Amino acid sequence: METGNRLNLVTAFIVILAGTGSDHQLSKWSAKACEQHTGMGKPRAKVAIVELIEHGFVAHSERSTKLYPQYRLPPIPLDSDPIFLPVAMITGIEAEASMLRRVRETGDPLLLRMLVDLYGLVQLDATFGVPITALSETPPTDYPSRKVFELGVHSVWAMRLGGSKTAKGAWASYHRTESRSNDKAWEDFWPRVAMLEKIGAIWYEAWIFDSDEPDAEPLFPVDFAALYHQGEGDDVTQLTRTMLDAAANLSEERSDLLGRYGLDMLVTLAQHRRAPGIRGVARMRIEADTPGRRLSYYKRRTQIEIYEAGYTQIALDALRGEYNRPMNTAAPQ
């Protein structure tokens, strides 16, 4: 498809789409909205919109006028799998520049494609993030999960995250440069991922999984900052501290266990469970309040409450010298 500026073309389309209602059909957002939300000047925005019309992506509605333009978008096919982009990604939040404006300011149209791709990958489980097979922060290769000790029905594992990341799948292949050798094919991919991190579009949340396999189930999030800082925190911080207290109470060397493993997350699980895994789940900073998101956060909240109660019980049992009651991780009925 011929276009004078591909980034402006796609940016203008996303802005017009953000101005539609629940049926995603009619929009009154035009060149002015492009200028307001993305910094694209009206002359460039008008050129981009003309190109959108020429290529059939939008059309003037029957009520559209030159002074008050209105656009109609093609109906969404029933068998399609649309990607949901939150309006706040286009309009921004509070006094911040919008993510769409920040991406456009880089001048890289494939960065916008990567951002949209990542939104399309978000899965509706408790992490509400990108699948760990597609993009995630990984543990150090020379430091896998290792068992610290066993006591009664409990095993305590030491785990840590590294600074490295991994990516796989068709979405990643699209952003690779196939014409280059294997060692250079990712030269454009990782700088784009880093740029999305720099502009605040994505971040990584540490999660404990039931294994290090690609299809591992997420158990609960943890906060590594809780290893170093006391004081108030959110529910994840509180869960992490309770989990660390449980490990310390189980240890015969309670006084220095946390000191000796200061860089590690000490995770207590039942002995029958396989070795757990840890990953940094890629999360989108701007999320929309959709039914899917609310369901995911209900799952997240439930799992945090289950493990919070379980670790509290383990810590109390250990103070009484009782080590034979396994944690109940079943969701309440």
Rank of each mutant, 00 (worst) to 15 (best):
T237V: 12
S80P: 00
Q238T: 05
I14C: 12
E35W: 08
T302K: 13
Y297D: 15
N328P: 00
K165F: 12
N324Y: 08
G310C: 09
R301W: 09
G200D: 03
S155D: 10
A158P: 00
Y204D: 05
D108E: 15
A12C: 13
E94V: 05
L124P: 01
K28H: 11
T290N: 04
Q313M: 14
P74D: 07
P43Q: 09
K299R: 10
R101L: 03
E187A: 09
I76H: 03
A201N: 04
S251Y: 03
L269Q: 12
Q271M: 11
D223R: 09
A248P: 00
V50Q: 14
I49R: 03
P221T: 10
V236L: 05
G120K: 03
Y204P: 01
T166Y: 12
G41M: 08
A270D: 06
K184F: 00
Y119K: 02
D210E: 06
L115C: 04
A288C: 04
T106M: 00
A134R: 09
E253G: 04
M265P: 00
V122N: 10
T141H: 12
G321Q: 08
S164E: 13
V148Y: 02
P218C: 04
G41T: 11
V58N: 07
L244C: 02
S27G: 13
W186E: 13
S181P: 00
M265A: 07
L52A: 11
P82D: 12
Q25A: 08
M1W: 04
G56E: 11
E137L: 14
G56C: 07
G107C: 00
T133P: 03
K184E: 10
R273A: 09
G107Y: 02
D108K: 06
G107E: 01
V281W: 11
E322G: 05
D235M: 04
A315F: 01
A88Y: 05
D235A: 14
F57R: 10
A248Q: 11
W203N: 14
L7S: 02
T268S: 08
D256A: 09
Q70N: 12
A309N: 11
E217N: 14
Y119G: 03
L250I: 01
P86W: 14
G19C: 06
E217R: 15
T237Y: 09
L263K: 10
K198Q: 15
G129N: 05
T65I: 01
E287W: 06
P139C: 07
T141I: 07
I76E: 15
G200H: 02
L78R: 12
Y204N: 09
E35H: 14
E178D: 12
L227N: 10
Q303L: 13
E197V: 06
A59M: 14
H55G: 15
R320G: 08
D212K: 12
P131R: 10
A59P: 01
K299F: 07
L151N: 14
A318K: 05
S155L: 02
T290M: 07
I208A: 08
A282E: 06
R146E: 13
I314K: 13
M327L: 14
K66I: 02
S98C: 03
I93L: 11
K184D: 09
N324W: 05
T237I: 01
T177I: 05
P75C: 08
L135V: 02
V10D: 15
R176P: 01
I132T: 13
P69W: 13
G310V: 01
N5K: 11
W207M: 03
W171L: 09
E96K: 06
D289V: 00
D183K: 07
M99A: 09
M195V: 01
V236H: 03
D289R: 13
P221I: 06
G231Q: 06
